[in-house]
Write a protein that binds this DNA or RNA. Structure first.
Lengths: 224, 224
DNA sequence: TGAAATCATTACAATATGGTAACATAAAAA
DNA sequence: TTTTTATGTTACCATATTGTAATGATTTCA
């Protein structure tokens, strides 16, 4: 399951750090910014699920910034954080596209709960991620990450690794693999599997330090 | 547009009345209840958009009642109202399916804003702008801007790009695209997709500097 | 220890797949 | 109508992928 990513804009460095620490402890990815600079670019490039924005930023009003994002079509949920507490300000925050509002000094536990509630509504998650050790296979994006780094696989290699992970506690015979990955056991030879496994190994572990795939003599292959 | 209907459970009659008055003034339909009795029947019969629930009801805990509703499949947004203010209680409210939380004595203006924000989220009007990197697709105006500059697309190209952006984290197979863009998978060939993608690429990135669309060998196409 | 079986690795050739241009046809516009 | 535009199809070529065979390494077991 992909981690939810939360982008935070907070000019007080201590507070930003503290917030990131707490969010990471809860299992979120965080991206901290001390100003609105570069935030838009980041939104275009990264899959952000939610923003936490201080309204009192040096230079720009946080809520104005969010309003401009909304105009440009960014739809992510936003929680405003602020020291201000008058009606006027709360109203303005909501009107400019905020989903929730927390006043400083805030209770971190409450903030976490609000985040959870909002994410449950706005980014209902699909679980297309297969994880094995530091391998993560995104079935929809057809993407493999090894220790966080993207590695390109061909369709065959991808299907092969997927089958291995889906059956990570079994040794898979070559016949099994031919049937499930190649879909046509009779047509191919056992050696074909050898070569494919070999190619896969080289791609996911070119330095051969990690030993993901083990061959069981006379039986087949398994993850180890 | 239909008025949004808010169901309120609040045992203090004065407060209930005041709240209903304020909500109606804002243009909502309201349904007031002094206890949880009959609420479920009402939910089945009326199109309710949101519930506002006092947690301190005589007899039942409001949050328990909501939890039981959730179990039965009612998905409406819930705002809890309570005099309590400890972490414990806030947490329990959220965990049991609340979307927001307001403590008495609450500021009616803030409550109204929270209602508005939550309704916007739970019954959203769909955004007319789709963004991907420096591509912005205006679905209503049927207009594409690449880095702020208008680019003309045919209907097919537009639908294709729209589908790609709407599924920007997935690799889309040619079959999927034929089904969703051409609407008739069987009638067309896979090659048709190739050519259409190719034409689209040439329009949004004629100099081939930006690489918006990537083909995944043996799988399909995706934004990158 | 040594032969047989199994497996890893490499190189090469066959095949599948994708890109692109050209053409054909249908639909829309003039 | 003619002209333009949109879009499906085909053909051809480049390239990525993958099966196979050959060779060398490793494991098993008598």
């Amino acid at each position: 399951m992909r981690k939810r990513t939360i982008l935070i804009i907070e000019d007080e460095e201590d507070l930003l750090e503290l917030l990131e620490y707490n969010l990471q402890k809860e299992g979120y990815e965080t991206l901290g910014f001390l100003s609105t600079k570069n935030v838009e670019q980041c939104l275009q490039e990264e899959p952000i699920d939610m923003l936490i924005v201080d309204r009192n930023l040096p230079g720009a009003e946080g809520s104005e910034f969010v309003a401009s994002l909304r105009k440009k079509g960014f739809g992510q949920a936003v929680i405003f954080v602020t020291a201000k507490n008058s009606d006027m300000n709360i109203e303005e925050g909501f009107l400019r596209g905020g989903d929730d509002y927390v006043t400083k000094p805030y209770n971190i536990k409450e903030l976490l709960l609000r985040i959870k509630a909002i994410l449950a509504r706005t980014a209902p998650e699909k679980s297309t991620l297969l994880i094995y050790r530091d391998l993560s296979l995104d079935l929809e994006a057809h993407l493999l990450q090894v220790n966080g780094k993207a590695v390109e696989l061909t369709k065959l290699e991808f299907d092969l690794l997927r089958t291995l992970i889906e059956n990570k506690n079994s040794v898979l015979s070559r016949d099994f693999l031919l049937e499930h990955v190649w879909k046509n056991e009779e047509f191919f030879q056992d050696k074909t599997v050898n070569v494919a496994i070999n190619r896969l190994k080289n791609k996911i572990d070119p330095t051969k330090e990690k030993e993901y795939i083990k061959s069981i003599w006379g039986v087949g292959y398994t993850l180890c």
